[in-house]
Every structure is written in structure tokens, then in C-alpha cells.
């Protein structure tokens, strides 16, 4: 089995994986990082979104071996070491941008990249950016409000 090394939430990790193992399987099943969720099998829902080298990626669509030598951040790695929520996490709480919580990690990871890339993003840009993330609870209204608020802080 191929051996890979990656930086995961700031720590170095090595693992032997089958060539067919998906990044999300490595995270959830081998490394116990169950904050990253699987909501579909057609790369549509975005619940599995993580950051690879700072870009949001659907981890169900990437092989674990492709993460070799790269930097991966999951929802578990977003808050500060002392537990302080990231601006996007805090905004989701402030604006009630989550209900059942299942799509939330993917939404937060995706929104975090947007806020970092495009701090002034308006409603239309946010709605279009979130095209790859499905939420069945919130009707997106409060997610958009949360992302807009975080975008205004200019920090993801």
C-alpha cells in the first residue's frame, strides 16, 4: 500500500492507504476526524468539503494519495488552539446559520475560502459560491447572512 505524508490541521501525519482510498475515508475512518461528513455519492452535496493547500475541496472526490505532501485543514482545525471560533464559525453561530449541523462543516470550510479570497463578497456572490454545498434545513437565508457578516470582517 502506498505511504503518504501530509500536514493535517498543522500536524504531520503519515499513513499507509490503499490506492483507492478517498481523502474523506482517510480522514473519517483512519484518522478519526469525523467532523467531515459524507452526504452523497455524486460529489453534489459538499458536506465533505475540506481545505487542501488553502483551497476548498470535496474530499469525496480526491484520493488520499493525492494529498501526499500537501496541507489539509478540516473543520476540527479551524478554531484557534484555545477554542476561539474562527470568524466564519462565530458568524454561523451569531446568525443561526445551522440547524441539524450535518452540512455545517462543509459549509463553513467552503465559506471560509470565499471570505479569505473575496472579503467584500455580496449576497449574490455568496449564493453562487455556495452552489456546491447543499443544506436542507436553513433555506440558506441565515448562512448567507453569516457569510456576509464574516466577509465584512475580512477574515476567514
Amino acid at each position: 500500500m502506498p505511504a503518504i505524508s501530509l500536514k493535517l490541521n498543522g500536524r504531520s501525519v503519515t499513513a499507509e492507504v490503499e490506492a483507492r482510498t478517498l481523502l474523506v475515508e482517510l480522514l473519517r475512518e483512519r484518522l478519526g476526524l469525523t467532523g467531515t461528513h459524507v452526504g452523497c455519492d455524486t460529489s453534489q452535496c459538499g458536506a465533505c468539503t475540506v481545505h487542501v493547500d488553502g483551497r476548498s475541496v470535496k474530499s469525496c472526490t480526491m484520493l488520499a494519495v493525492e494529498a501526499d505532501g500537501r496541507e489539509v485543514t478540516t473543520i476540527e482545525g479551524l478554531a484557534a488552539a484555545d477554542g476561539t471560533l474562527s470568524p466564519v464559525q462565530a458568524a454561523f453561530r451569531e446568525h443561526h446559520g445551522l440547524q441539524c449541523g450535518f452540512c455545517t462543516p462543509g459549509m463553513v470550510m467552503s465559506a471560509t475560502e470565499l471570505v479569505r479570497r473575496n472579503p467584500g463578497a455580496g449576497e449574490r456572490e455568496i449564493r453562487e459560491w455556495l452552489e456546491g454545498n447543499l443544506c436542507r434545513c436553513t433555506g440558506y437565508h441565515n448562512i448567507v447572512k453569516a457569510v456576509q457578516a464574516a466577509a465584512q470582517t475580512g477574515r476567514g
Binding site: G35, T74, E76, L85, E94, H96, L98, F102, P105
Partner: peptide
């Protein structure tokens, strides 16, 4: 009131059956 549920869901600490 802000929700008691939020902190665990926002930090990936929810416990769903598949977890």
C-alpha cells in the same frame, strides 16, 4: 438565545451514527 447545539456542530464534534 444563541444555540447550545452550535459549538459542537461548528467544530466537527457532533456525534452522528456514522461517526
Amino acid at each position: 438565545m444563541k444555540r447550545k447545539e452550535d459549538l459542537r456542530f461548528l467544530t466537527g464534534k457532533g456525534t452522528y451514527v456514522d461517526d
